[in-house]
């Protein structure tokens, strides 16, 4: 039996070897190049060190964030749009001679309510001012207010939130403060503060941030609590790491992505806040143009001269949406799970 198998297998082996080969092409032993087997294979020496080497290219967090972000053409397009809008709204108003307290063309009936044209890009308004000038002046002020308020909100919110999330003692009374503040209507606070402090950049930014930071802090507190008790923090504690180092080195790096997401929602939200407050007459004073005030002034012309209303509204929408998209995409890129 075994002999039969051996023979059979040997036959099969021979068949396989010669199978499909043209008999003429078969190389005769004489023609084969004589190769010493030692030249083809050599014994590899076992090296423990070599088995530890990591072949993958070096990973760098920020480089990967950048690569992921730039990897999408849409991200680049929207970022260019954002940079252009922000730059334009900061540069252009210093070249236009627009002054919200001045109405040089108020008596020039031929300059009122003109539709957009080559000469008047966005047309003119009820007192003969260029809508183009008004809108960009307003966009600049709205951006200044919302960016400043976001920065204050985030800085205060992150610092307080990080400590709040870590300290169980602080949590007890902070949560009560949070409950009280979150139950007071914001409009009430805004009205009272605007009567006390008056109008202007400082008072408006103060009004917008005076209670808003606690929502950021609450958000950060929850995030910190989620990762606070993970084992690597315990390990850091066993190594004697101080709470502050733990926050900056162990907790916040994990939160970059969620903080980015929050900022990308916060900037447009605060622009809307500003628009809302100015619309209600609680925002910047008469002496400052802002998108909110502009829209509020032009609302009455929505039917007669629709460009007066729709142009500032579209500019507001473009700014808000593009800022939001860039923020979201940056947040996505900051999440290491998207890194390749």
């Amino acid at each position: 039996m075994i002999n039969f198998l051996k023979k059979h297998m040997f036959d099969k082996y021979r068949l396989d070897k010669d199978f499909g080969k043209n008999p003429e092409e078969t190389v005769s032993p004489e023609e084969e190049v004589a190769v010493n087997e030692d030249e083809l294979f050599c014994q590899a020496e076992f090296d423990e060190k070599k088995s530890e080497i990591i072949a993958a290219p070096r990973y760098s967090y920020w480089k990967s964030v950048w690569k992921t972000f730039v990897g999408s053409k849409m991200n680049i397009a929207v970022s260019i749009l954002v940079i252009f809008i922000v730059a334009f709204s900061f540069i252009y108003p210093s070249f236009s001679n627009y002054d919200p307290m001045d109405a040089p063309y108020i008596n020039d009936a031929s300059r009122k309510y003109l539709a957009p044209s080559a000469e008047h890009i966005f047309g003119t308004d009820d007192i003969g001012n260029e809508v183009f000038d008004v809108v960009w002046e307003g966009a600049r002020n709205s951006l200044i207010v919302s960016l400043a308020a976001t920065a204050i909100d985030m800085i205060v919110g992150i610092i307080v939130g990080a400590i709040w999330g870590f300290s169980k003692k602080m949590d007890k009374w902070m949560i009560e403060i949070y409950n009280v503040i979150s139950n007071v209507p914001f409009l009430l606070i805004a009205m009272i503060l605007s009567y006390i402090l008056g109008n202007g950049f400082g008072p408006l930014i103060f009004t917008m941030t005076v209670t808003d930071w606690i929502f950021v802090a609450y958000f950060i507190r929850t995030q910190v609590m989620i990762i606070r008790d993970r084992e690597y923090n315990l390990a850091s504690k066993c190594l004697g790491t101080s709470t502050w180092t733990m926050v900056t080195k162990n907790i916040l790096p994990y939160l970059i992505s969620v903080i980015m997401t929050y900022i990308s929602r916060q900037v447009p939200a605060l622009i809307s806040y500003e628009v809302f407050l100015s619309y209600m007459g609680l925002g910047l004073g008469m002496q400052y143009a802002s998108l909110g005030r502009t829209i509020s002034n032009y609302t009455s012309y929505m039917r007669g001269y629709p460009h007066l209303f729709w142009i500032p509204v579209s500019i507001l929408a473009i700014i808000s949406i593009s800022l939001y998209i860039v923020g979201q995409k940056l947040a996505d890129a900051a999440d290491p799970r998207t890194h390749r």
């Binding site: 993970r230 690597y232 390990a235 190594l239 004697g240 180092t245 080195k249 162990n250």
Partner: peptide
């Protein structure tokens, strides 16, 4: 202390150099 789960007990956002020198810094 040496921890049970090596994946959970190292700070994923820090380099090995930082992980190891953490005690030295402190």
């Amino acid at each position: 202390m040496i921890f049970q789960d090596p994946a959970a007990s190292l700070n994923e956002r820090a380099t090995i150099e930082y992980c190891i020198s953490e005690g030295l810094y402190n």
